[in-house]
Design a protein around this nucleic acid. Sequence first.
DNA 1: TGTAATTGCTCTAGCCACTAGAGCTTCAAG
DNA 2: CTTGAAGCTCTAGTGGCTAGAGCAATTACA
Lengths: 138, 138
Amino acid sequence: MFSIGDLSRRTGVKVPTIRYYEQMGLVAAPERSEGNQRRYSRQELERLAFIRHARDLGFAVEDIRSLIDLSGHPEQPCGHADRIAEEQLISVRDKVAQLKRLEAELERIATCCNGETVGDCYVIRALSDHALCTDEHG
Amino acid sequence: MFSIGDLSRRTGVKVPTIRYYEQMGLVAAPERSEGNQRRYSRQELERLAFIRHARDLGFAVEDIRSLIDLSGHPEQPCGHADRIAEEQLISVRDKVAQLKRLEAELERIATCCNGETVGDCYVIRALSDHALCTDEHG
DNA sequence: TGTAATTGCTCTAGCCACTAGAGCTTCAAG
DNA sequence: CTTGAAGCTCTAGTGGCTAGAGCAATTACA
């Protein structure tokens, strides 16, 4: 049996976050010691590792809830799980594309300042005047 | 003079968000009509456009506050503004790198599922077993 | 066995940047 | 002069935690 601190160290999920997941119903309420402290089994450790892994990959808590539900029904077709993963992939790709555009814009802004005072600072001017932008970000 | 709706349409910032910015002190409280409705000048339109632009570029509200303060002191050296922009660039680059790693991992997970049921679905297995990961994401 | 440090407990409130909704008033077009 | 859109204030909710107060339990060591 693991204490909540053990679980935290083994999964990398912070202690208050574990309690938060319990409150949200992502992990079940575990057994308690005589003194009312949480005691986890290996199964619960694995579920938390699953959650951690999915969070690392950017899945929303609601998606993780679905994935956990699915993993409890191994006989069902896995189209739903695939769809969740594909949507997450699309969303990550969108974010990358968006951030790449920002990066380009910021590079132009942040590396081109020859001004010495705010009055002719390219950073400030670029932010004030959208027309200086080459690209339609946002 | 512009109504809050005019401002919203011209800058792309939603009406409740404009009021929120006012509450946060990012934009000053504007004049009011006889019937207590907000009436904005062109200057205020420009400030909001500045904010919108900076938010699009991912600057935090606190950074924007600094940039606005700076733009009100055009005689000062612009090193501070440059630093804010450079830090933002670094943070965007970090995010891109992180998301690229996630993208690679998700591609592997989402495109390799040959299973027909959840029981042998690669998505679920990959999330359950970190050892299937090639890369240390997270 | 004593005790001190660490870890755990519950509860409430805060973070960021909005967003939603209730219930009301004002404005602008026809 | 009416009607419907747009405005107002206020409170509360979102996601995914995080922080802190004020206790209780556990554990390591003497």
